[in-house]
């Protein structure tokens, strides 16, 4: 249910949202300035901002993921940047909501800001430090105030590990079963929910990798659940 609703809202929002000038409807930037306290321990933004625990956040909208020179990013976020992920409202909203669901190995040790309205405020604030008018790329933004988490009924599906084992034979031409990382990330032993969330991130095409979008795109929810259970067991 969640997914379908998101997509519909996304389309509506995109059509009535064209002009950058109107984008203040995004949220309340002044409230967002206060919320930035959540982030300030690790990030700075504005004049003279430098990298700290996290990268500086100037020019964030329209910036490629993991692009700040001299900052040591996680492999996952780096791969996404290489694959062409450009930060826009929708992607930032998803990342800030649940960083780990977005990039499984992210180095951002922050649990996520669950309140959608607060995220909209915060992003309106960060947007002040991005170039205008290129600050909101054309990639269709989702309506502010959307919950991006995978529908609980999908997470609740009990996967069939035997079916998962069969399906996994498609995956292990690339992902090594012993968990070695030679250029393609290991996927064994993950918590089931994390695995499901990651697969849906490809299926939903906001993780940019074309191979994985194709692989996940043809898997049903049951199949993803089956794979998650199987790969979890392999890691034990």
């Amino acid at each position: 249910m969640g997914w379908i609703r998101n997509i519909i809202l996304g389309v509506v929002a995109a059509t009535c949202w064209g002009l950058p000038g109107l984008a203040n409807e995004l949220g309340d930037a002044d409230k967002g300035a206060e919320l930035f306290d959540e982030c300030a321990a690790c990030h700075s933004v504005g004049q003279g901002a430098e990298n700290g625990v996290g990268p500086h956040l100037n020019g964030l909208f329209g910036r490629r993921a993991a692009e700040v020179d001299g900052f040591n990013y996680s492999a996952g976020l780096t791969r996404m940047g290489n694959d062409g992920l450009i930060w826009d409202f929708d992607l930032l909203d998803r990342y800030v909501e649940n960083p780990k669901a977005f990039a499984s190995d992210t180095r951002m040790a922050y649990g996520g800001l669950k309140d959608a309205a607060q995220r909209a405020d915060l992003l309106a604030f960060l947007r002040r430090y991005s170039d205008d008018p290129a600050n909101i790329p054309e990639a269709a933004p989702t309506a502010p105030g959307t919950d991006h988490s995978v529908d609980p009924t999908i997470l609740a599906i009990q996967g069939d590990p035997e079916y998962g084992e069969y399906l996994s034979s498609e995956c292990v031409s690339c992902h090594q079963l012993d968990g070695d990382y030679d250029g393609i990330p290991p996927i064994i032993g993950w918590p089931v929910d994390d695995f499901v969330v990651a697969m849906h991130a490809y299926k939903d095409k906001f993780r940019p990798h074309p191979v994985m979008q194709m692989m996940a795109g043809r898997l049903s929810n049951d199949e993803i659940a089956a794979l998650a259970v199987y790969f979890k067991q392999v890691g034990q």
């Binding site: 690339c174 079963l177 990382y181 030679d182």
Partner: peptide, 11 residues
């Protein structure tokens, strides 16, 4: 990625 694939498929 292709190096990862090579390791994966030969295994």
């Amino acid at each position: 990625e292709s190096i990862g694939w090579y390791a994966g498929i030969t295994a």
